[in-house]
Amino acid sequence: MISFSQVYKRYPGGYEALRNISLNIGAGEMVFITGHSGAGKSTLLKLLTAIERPTSGSVVVNGQNVGALRPRAIPFLRRNFGLVFQDHKLLFDRTVFDNVLLPLNIRGFRRGEAARRVRAALDKVGLLDKEKARPVTLSGGEQQRLCIARAIVHRPAILLADEPTANLDAAYAGELGSLFQSFNQVGVTVVIATHDENLAARLRPRVITLRQGGLMTTPEEAAAT
């Protein structure tokens, strides 16, 4: 479903964010990408969603070479993903309901069907009673759950999350973890960039560790080979 082969990413100025990354993520897997700040986790996600292009090597998603996509095709690549951002990126000028509606509007869903799906997604994350509220009135954890609702409302095949638990206390983080697990159980590929070790210990996902832009083999993988 996702494969990196010999990917390098060098930013202007010579900073090398990723070095010789080759990895495969299959459909329905749950994968954690860990590593210290600056190890290249975010860059990896940016390459996946075509926000950045690899300097060399290829990134393939669903059989499409992301680095070689024409600009016109990029929106359609991104529709494969549900994105959960560290800073939520919620729109504060509209209600909770309208925030979740945005991905469906972009895809041109009909009103009735869209409303049904938005409520289903809000129910899933436990915010159904707040659909008319403004995001500012929500707590940090609720805002993150709203962000997740927006990411899953269009039922993406791949859920990408960048530090979803960074600003949350342990109890909230645990709730989010089981939420991600439930999506994974219905077949969604889940990729989470995080350095939250508690979360990894609880969900027991496959872990890919980055160090200074390079790939570090996990002990389990080393044992397997």
Binding site: T49, I51, R72, P75, F76, L77, R78, R79, F81, L83, K89, L91, D93, L102, P103, I106, R107, R150, A151
Partner: peptide
Amino acid sequence: REEIEVAKLIGATDAF
């Protein structure tokens, strides 16, 4: 600007 950025990230076409 924020709205445009988010919309682009989640797959809005330029036309949209």
